[in-house]
Computed example of a mutant assay.
Amino acid sequence: MFQSARLKLTIWYVLISLVVSIIFSLTVYTLLARELQRNEQRLEGRLQLMRGLNPGFRPNFEMHRQDLALTESAVRWYLVYVNLFILLMTSAAGYLLAGRTLSPIKTMVDKQNQFVADASHELRTPLTALKTAVEVSLRDKNLDIKQAKEVLNANLEDVNRLVTLADELLILATLNTVKKQLLEELSLTQVIQDAIKSVKYLGKQKQVKIETTLSEISLVGDRERLLKMLVIFLDNAIKYSPAKSVIRVTAIKTDSKAQVSISDQGAGIGAKDLPHIFERFYRADKSRSKTKIEGYGLGLAIAKEILDLYKGTVAVESRPGQGTTFTIHLPLKIN
């Protein structure tokens, strides 16, 4: 599909260039032809004058007309050659330009197709589990109330996972523009504290302590999106931290940016996984923790989308067995 679109766009580039070139050539040829005719008339006038002054002078009008005709013919051929050269050049340049024009579109379409395929796969897994559980239960003639409740509880877990996936997909779909009406001057320090409160229960379950060193920082941003991003990073740190460990959160102001660091004492991330952790649906081959981590691999992708939207950046430092540090940089003002 991409190759076909590239060829079609190339043809349009060539046709437009060729039409412009032909119009320009016709204009040049018309002006030159008129100028040659005027020169011919002036030359004949001068020769007639010289003949009048010198009766013995015999000008060769036919030779001059042939010279002018040859000149006119040469101009025509030059213009033909120029147009052929332009045709060849625009064909090559048009093909390259079409490729560069369509390349971002192709990348976007490929990502979209991959996203749809991954989302379909992730949706299919819990749906298949639901369908299988219901079918098996319906066929079991000896199913009692206790077993039925167990099936319903398992189905409810699958439904909750589907709801979570749908919510995350919806967030990704709506993260396309900065909503100016939601921008406000706010305390990043307070947003960080609110994010910590949001994950407080999860931390208590694993007896993970969160230590903070926060400078007072104000910036312009969308509070809900910033809160969502910080909750994702904190939730991720808690999930992959061992029990009774410590997560350290620091926030400082550097020039025109705010820097937030979140460090955990988890198992770390392998070098082969680091370049991919912000990709949608990406999960490491080996879990960073000894226990199974629930999720679809969309959290960090959402956080990165929010950062990109607000011109922020994130750096990751991690080594297996030594924990992971996410360092976030946010501009204090959004242009």
Rank of each mutant, 00 (worst) to 15 (best):
Gly45Met: 08
Phe57Met: 03
Arg58Asn: 05
Arg46Tyr: 09
Tyr81Ile: 14
Thr71Lys: 11
Asn83Cys: 14
Leu68Gly: 01
Arg46Glu: 09
Leu87Met: 01
Leu47Cys: 05
Leu43Val: 08
Arg76Phe: 14
Ala33Asn: 11
Glu62Asn: 07
Asn39Arg: 13
Glu40Lys: 03
Leu84Asp: 02
Glu44Pro: 02
Glu35Tyr: 12
Leu79His: 11
Tyr78Asp: 15
Met50Val: 09
Gly45Val: 02
Thr71Gly: 13
Phe61Ala: 00
Leu49Val: 00
Val82Phe: 14
Thr71Val: 14
Tyr81Ser: 10
Arg34Phe: 06
Phe85Thr: 15
Met89Leu: 15
Arg34His: 07
Thr71Ser: 13
Leu88Ile: 15
Leu87Gly: 01
Leu47Tyr: 03
Pro59Glu: 03
Pro55Asn: 00
Arg51Phe: 00
Ala74Pro: 02
Ala33Gly: 10
Met89Gln: 04
Arg46Ala: 09
Gln37Arg: 07
Arg51Lys: 08
Gly52Thr: 03
Ala74Asp: 09
Leu53Asp: 03
Glu62Trp: 06
Thr71Cys: 12
Arg38Asp: 06
Gln66Phe: 09
Met89Asn: 05
Leu87Thr: 02
Val80Gly: 13
Ala33Lys: 11
Phe61Pro: 01
Gln37Glu: 11
Leu49Asn: 03
Pro55Glu: 00
Asn39Leu: 14
Glu72Phe: 12
Leu88Glu: 13
Asn54Glu: 07
Gly56Phe: 04
Phe61Ile: 05
Asn39Ala: 13
Tyr78Leu: 15
Leu53Cys: 06
Glu62Cys: 04
Arg46Pro: 04
Asn60His: 10
Tyr78Ile: 15
Phe85Asn: 15
Glu40Tyr: 01
Val80Lys: 11
Ile86Trp: 04
Asn54Ile: 06
Gly45Pro: 05
Val82Gln: 03
